[in-house]
Design a protein around this nucleic acid. Sequence first.
DNA 1: GACAAAGAAGACCTAGAGAGTCTATATTGT
DNA 2: ACAATATAGACTCTCTAGGTCTTCTTTGTC
Lengths: 149, 149
Amino acid sequence: MNVGRRVDYAVRALSFLAGQPAGKIVSRADIEKCQDIPSFYLSKIMKDLVAGGLVQSHIGSKGGFSLAKLPTSISIKDVYETVERPLVLMDCLERGADYCSYCSVCTQKSIWEEAQKVLAEFLGRISINDIADRQGLKGRLVGSLQKAG
Amino acid sequence: MNVGRRVDYAVRALSFLAGQPAGKIVSRADIEKCQDIPSFYLSKIMKDLVAGGLVQSHIGSKGGFSLAKLPTSISIKDVYETVERPLVLMDCLERGADYCSYCSVCTQKSIWEEAQKVLAEFLGRISINDIADRQGLKGRLVGSLQKAG
DNA sequence: GACAAAGAAGACCTAGAGAGTCTATATTGT
DNA sequence: ACAATATAGACTCTCTAGGTCTTCTTTGTC
């Protein structure tokens, strides 16, 4: 029941992009440097974010990434499900009755189903913009990026 | 962000015990058989439940397990935390700043903190008794146990 | 056109966790 | 004394998360 680093890094990368001036393209290496993400690791995550339509990539020299949607319209739930998997608390809720022979009489199912609904609703209400706002990226980190690059 | 089998089995074992007549002692093997839990696996889980004070063990011939508390006073959150770990969604909320150098400027933290609070509140409100009731253990499964054992 | 700077794609590695199995030992009712 | 039971812990196996690196393709710039 833990959220892994992929999600952590994805949220950081996205909120970092959200803090850039509109249209600005930032390279993987720059994001990694500014957000303390291990070298190269972000490439796999960005691939998912691009495939999921959250981020736009720009190949070639001076290439990089920018947001493909408004930061207000990207929820944490979106991010989680894009870089990880559907938000499901117990495996039997995804996989069928092959997972457990007692599935038909199981009443835990509905508990976990409700729990994950509660969680999904909460995470669906938080946007990348909320996070970018809070950390004041629009000021502080743009500056440090421009100094760095 | 998934709940593993340990919790699944623990909840099943506990709600099974909750469905027994007061004072009845049930062996590990019987619980495993009636709840479709792999042989011997339950012994490790029961050890945690005993250590956590949710279950009382009875060593020796005709020994076994019984609930140590009222089923209404055992929440799913209790079970999770007893057999798994504290209910924490992101590792940096447990471990200190050694986990991530940007901890001090991180604003995801508070998001996950709130999310886990929402989840913990929900799971804290559901009791083992709720689950035992729903599955009608008090009738059906006691009968099948007595046939089986 | 040449070159450098990017992303794309994917191979590779490692540590650890999760799940499951089994055995030796201590305890206790009959 | 014996059988049935929990206790404790060793052991295996597989999968995943996290991380690293290399090769290929695309594209801006000179």
